[in-house]
Amino acid sequence: MEPEPRPNTPVAALTELLAGNDRFVTGRRVHPHQDAHYRASLAAEQRPFAVVFGCSDSRLAAEMIFDRGLGDLFVVRTAGHILGAEVRASIEYGVSVLGAALVVVLGHDSCGAVKAAHDVLAGDTALAGELTPIVERVVPNVRFAHRQGVTDPDRVAEIHVRRTIETLLTGDSATTRAVAEGRCAVVGMSYRLAEGRVSVLGADPLAEDRLDAA
Rank of each mutant, 00 (worst) to 15 (best):
S41V: 10
L17M: 08
M1R: 12
A122H: 01
V135I: 15
L42H: 09
A207R: 09
N141F: 09
D109H: 07
T9W: 03
L14S: 06
D204I: 04
V97M: 06
A85V: 15
R137K: 13
V51S: 00
V75L: 13
D209G: 15
A36W: 08
Q34Y: 05
V150H: 02
G149E: 05
N141C: 09
R39I: 13
A100P: 00
V104R: 06
C55M: 02
H81M: 08
A40L: 15
A62I: 06
R147T: 14
D22A: 15
A174H: 11
I91Q: 05
H37W: 06
N21C: 08
D204G: 07
T26G: 13
S56I: 10
R23C: 05
E181I: 10
D152T: 06
T176S: 12
G129M: 05
V51D: 01
R6T: 06
D204S: 02
V179F: 01
P32F: 04
V138D: 05
F74H: 14
R88H: 10
F74T: 11
A122C: 04
C184F: 12
G202H: 07
V135A: 01
N141M: 11
G20M: 02
C111L: 05
T78G: 10
P10F: 10
G202A: 10
H108Q: 05
C184P: 04
D204A: 01
V52Q: 01
Y93I: 09
S110R: 10
R59M: 06
A194W: 01
L70P: 13
H118A: 09
G107F: 01
E63R: 12
V156L: 14
D152M: 08
T176P: 08
S90K: 12
F53P: 00
C111A: 03
G99R: 02
E181K: 14
A145G: 04
I82E: 11
A89V: 14
R137G: 03
T132L: 11
A180C: 06
F53Y: 03
G112I: 05
E158A: 14
V135E: 00
A101S: 07
T15V: 09
K115C: 02
L127W: 07
L169K: 04
V95F: 11
I134R: 04
V200F: 01
V161R: 13
T175C: 01
A157T: 09
E4C: 13
I134E: 11
L106Y: 04
R137L: 09
A180G: 07
T170G: 14
E181W: 10
A126W: 00
P32H: 03
I82H: 12
S173I: 13
L98D: 07
A185C: 09
G107E: 02
G182T: 15
R88S: 11
L70Q: 14
G202T: 06
M189R: 06
V139Y: 00
H108S: 00
A126T: 10
T170F: 11
G99F: 00
L70C: 08
G149Q: 04
D67H: 03
T9L: 08
R39Q: 13
D204P: 02
A101C: 03
A40M: 14
E181T: 14
P7D: 07
D35Q: 13
T170P: 02
C184E: 10
A113E: 02
T175E: 03
R47D: 09
G112L: 06
A62W: 05
H31R: 10
A180Y: 04
M64D: 07
A100C: 14
T125P: 00
H146W: 15
A19V: 08
V179W: 04
R77K: 15
E92G: 10
G188W: 06
